[in-house]
């Protein structure tokens, strides 16, 4: 009997101690109907994240020296994948999606093993690293109009935009990330960084859909050389560019690539881009 009473007393004391912590001083995150809690997020952070992102969240964790795209510095609060304009803070949902999706071509995995609630808690905690979240509001997400119909004309117009906006200066004429400026690029921490290679895969840094691709060049990837084109591309033109960029992904079967291949011009361009033969050059067609 006596033992039970003592344990009950402990529970009561624990609740009393925890109450002020759960009160106003803590940050929250809001993703849809899920509300994240900073205190719980702290526990997850120091279990899963701090090995790379560091004790103080500035990206200098124990594993950081071994990574060639450095872990995000949460103190600087500059984020690549946003739905908000360049120079603004991302929404909680943007951060939530980044944790769920992971980052292709980096060491940041997709945290699908965590629940939505876990991820929401983590975001509430991550936001406590920078004072920016206290003084600034998240940006207003950019308006993404409905996708325009996919036509050959739209792909061709996208192709012209790719030339006119000089995307090829970094991404290369075939989108392989080998343009004339590619080798000189550095991120905002003066670390070398490579432009995206469209020919290598299907996933982009900030998602897999046409909608994600639209947002990447209209918001820019802050902290990297990739600028925002929001002021210089009209929304309908932006979809044309999306359609063309898809055709550069020659290893990904998209409706855009299929349509492009039906044209004489497109088929010629794509077959010239596809490497024939083996890497050793034995001439065997793949």
């Amino acid at each position: 009997m006596r033992k039970i009473n003592i344990s009950k007393l402990f529970v009561v004391i624990a609740i009393l101690l925890a109450t002020p912590l759960l009160g106003s001083a803590q940050d929250e995150s809001h993703i849809g109907k899920v509300t994240g809690n900073e205190g719980r997020g702290r526990q997850f952070y120091f279990r899963y994240c701090w090995g790379c992102h560091g004790f103080r969240g500035n990206g200098d964790g124990e594993n950081a020296p071994y990574l060639n795209i450095l872990p995000r510095n949460f103190v600087a609060a500059s984020f690549k994948c946003r739905s908000t304009p360049t120079g603004t803070l991302p929404t909680d949902e943007d951060l939530f999606n980044s944790i769920r999706r992971g980052f292709v071509n980096t060491n940041m995995p997709s945290w699908i093993t965590l629940t939505d609630q876990n991820r929401a808690d983590l975001i509430a905690f991550i936001k406590s690293f920078s004072p920016r979240w206290k003084t600034e509001k998240a940006g207003t997400p950019i308006n993404v109009p409905a996708e325009t119909p996919l036509t050959v004309q739209s792909i061709q117009h996208g192709q012209q935009l790719f030339q006119k906006l000089e995307c090829w200066k970094c991404h290369g004429q075939e989108g392989r990330g080998d343009g004339p400026s590619a080798s000189t690029l550095t991120d905002s921490n003066d670390q070398p960084i490579r432009p995206y290679n469209f020919a290598a895969g299907s996933r982009f840094k900030c998602g897999t859909t046409n909608h994600d691709l639209y947002k990447i060049f209209m918001t820019g990837l802050d902290g990297t050389p990739m600028p925002s084109f929001a002021d210089v591309i009209k929304p309908e033109e932006a979809w044309d560019l999306v359609h063309y960029l898809r055709t550069l992904q020659i290893r990904h079967n998209s409706p855009e690539l299929a349509l492009w291949l039906t044209t004489k011009e497109g088929a010629a361009i794509v077959s010239a881009q596809r490497v024939s033969g083996t890497p050793t050059g034995s001439g065997v067609n793949q």
Binding site: A76, T86, G87, R132, L165, G220, P227, S228, V232
Partner: peptide, 22 residues
């Protein structure tokens, strides 16, 4: 085309493309 990339640390960093004639 240029991209204007002021590497602000205290202010918010942004990065915008500016093609000729814009």
């Amino acid at each position: 085309s240029h991209n204007i990339h002021p590497l602000a640390k205290i202010n918010q960093e942004w990065n915008k493309s500016q093609p000729p004639g814009t």
